[in-house]
Write a protein that binds this DNA or RNA. Structure first.
Lengths: 149, 149
DNA sequence: TTACATGCAAACTGTTTGCAAATAT
DNA sequence: ATATTTGCAAACAGTTTGCATGTAA
């Protein structure tokens, strides 16, 4: 396992050429294999996305590429280590990955298990208490849970 | 935006008599069995608590009462349905239950997997965007993740 | 007495891992 | 050539469930 920890690429969304994708992977220290290119295309080829491993696996199969579920998991974790995706703790029962790695928050539609970004500018959190001695804040997650009105 | 299902009684923390606990369970429509009394004592007998099922099981065994893990799970869910505890989505790998069912937020110490309440008054969230059509906000979770400084 | 609760082990879900075969450089 | 990556199936953790037995009312 040799991950290169570099500043995550400000990738342009929208259909990404294989060359761009290859570059992206290379810079992350990952060989551009068929599987990683297929997953990368789905993840980074069309704006910000929220996926579970299972869902991404279904998608890649539907797209005609065969990639094992284990590889989907491994790849998502490699992408995460490379800073290309962020993992979200939303719902204990499955892991969600977000291709938007910038600072932003989420709506979560409970019944549908569906996630949506909240524009980064809108929410403001203040009145934060001091973290306990010897600790620092690494990240603040805000999840706005929605139900049918 | 600060919707709350009516919480069924702000029970007094601190060592709770068996009679009080029995009452509490009765009002929740739950028979005061040995197991539920033992778990209830641990959960509601000493201020606000954050527990995983596994940890609570260890505790109750350590306290000399034998309660199966399955019963711990079942009981936590019954307590949750009764509004006596709240389940937290913090970390995909295990479920945490919080005996503080009022509106408040959390510090989460990543490495230790430890949770702490943040005083309810301190954090303020504003600039919330409108929920999508036909949806309403059921709850807002704020988790402040901490790492060693 | 009877409806509810428990314990056990087995089932299940989502995720991870070990290892031989395949692939990228 | 060789280091990395993959797929598979088996392992795994946490959680849930079916059912016979035990218990509260």
């Amino acid at each position: 396992m040799n991950e290169r920890h570099e500043t995550p690429e400000p990738e342009t969304p929208e259909p990404m050429s294989e060359t761009r994708l290859t570059e992206l992977l290379r810079r992350a220290g990952l060989r551009p294999t068929r599987q990683r290119l297929a997953l990368g295309q789905l993840l980074f080829g069309s704006g910000d996305r929220h996926v579970s491993a299972e869902a991404l696996h279904a998608e890649v199969e539907a797209a005609g590429e065969s990639v094992s579920l284990a590889t989907v998991y491994n790849t998502l974790h490699q992408f995460k280590r490379a800073g290309l995706v962020r993992e979200l703790a939303i719902d204990g029962s499955r892991a969600y990955f977000d291709t938007n790695v910038s600072n932003h928050n989420h709506f979560f539609i409970e019944d549908a298990g569906e996630l949506m970004d909240i524009d980064s500018g809108s929410i403001r959190v203040d009145g934060l208490p001091e973290p306990p001695e010897g600790m620092r804040i690494s990240h603040i997650d805000v999840v706005v849970r929605l139900v049918k009105a």
